[in-house]
């Protein structure tokens, strides 16, 4: 599914190069359920943004389904994000102006799917995450757990190859965290490839493979 080889990422702060990722090698097979753990500031989000094609590595190669993504231009990366990747953020990142249904429809707008198909598929995705009765609610009318489930429905609606989640339970209480993790478990059982970042070992325990990152390097 994905293969990262010797991924290095530097941030430039003024005149200094700050190394954040120092040579990451990672391979994730289709259908895997992987957690990435590590202390705050260890580079988890930076790695996730590179895997999610939101950012480019300073060095190294990244293959998704045998295609070298480091050679793609901005539009190419946008296409990959839209068609192959689903992203779930800690802060949900829903558009407050739009209803749950419209939020879930958004990735399909950029995929060129017809309006009626969009509506049907978004509604089905919301039913799947248990929000079939909340499709016309705006984010402000939903609880944190419900908002995150809308975000998960949105991440899945274009049938991505890979679902990425950066601390998806970080803004949720214990009970709703459990609900969201149960949903991830279901999705894994349905064969979806999932990479989830967390610093919560309870969350990591539920995944099938745990990866630890420390100071920009994977340690085992």
């Amino acid at each position: 599914m994905i293969t990262l080889e010797n991924i290095v990422k530097h941030y430039r702060l003024g005149d200094v190069d700050v190394p954040v990722l120092k040579g990451i090698n990672l391979h994730v097979e289709a259908g895997e359920y992987v957690s990435i753990m590590g202390a705050s500031g260890s580079g988890k989000s930076t790695l996730m943004n590179i895997i999610g094609c939101l950012d480019r590595p300073t060095q190294g190669s990244y293959h998704l389904e045998n295609r070298d993504l480091t050679t793609l231009d901005k539009d190419g990366l946008a296409y990959i994000r839209n068609q192959y990747l689903g992203f779930v953020f800690q802060q949900f990142n829903l558009l407050s102006r739009l209803t749950a249904l419209e939020n879930v429809m958004l990735p399909m707008v950029y995929a060129g799917i017809s309006k009626t198909d969009r509506r049907d598929r978004a509604a089905a995705a919301l039913v799947k995450v248990g929000l079939g009765d909340r499709i016309t609610n705006r984010p402000s009318q939903l609880s944190g757990g419900q908002q995150q489930r809308v975000a998960i429905a949105r991440a899945l609606v274009n049938q991505p190859s890979l679902l990425l989640a950066d601390e998806p339970t970080g803004a949720l209480d214990t009970k709703t965290s459990k609900d969201v993790m149960a949903l991830f478990h279901d999705l894994h059982d349905q064969g979806i490839t999932i990479v989830v970042i967390t610093h919560d070992s309870d969350v990591a325990e539920q995944t099938k493979r745990k990866i630890h990152i420390q100071d920009g390097l994977i340690i085992d």
Binding site: G52, L54, K74, D75, A78, Y79, R81, N82, Q83, F87, N93, L94, L95, L106, P107, Y110, A111, R154, N158
Partner: peptide, 16 residues
């Protein structure tokens, strides 16, 4: 700005 980030993360191109 955040809306623009979200749209881009979901696949919107610069020209869109």
């Amino acid at each position: 700005t955040r809306e623009i980030g979200i749209r881009k993360a979901l696949g919107a191109t610069d020209s869109t």
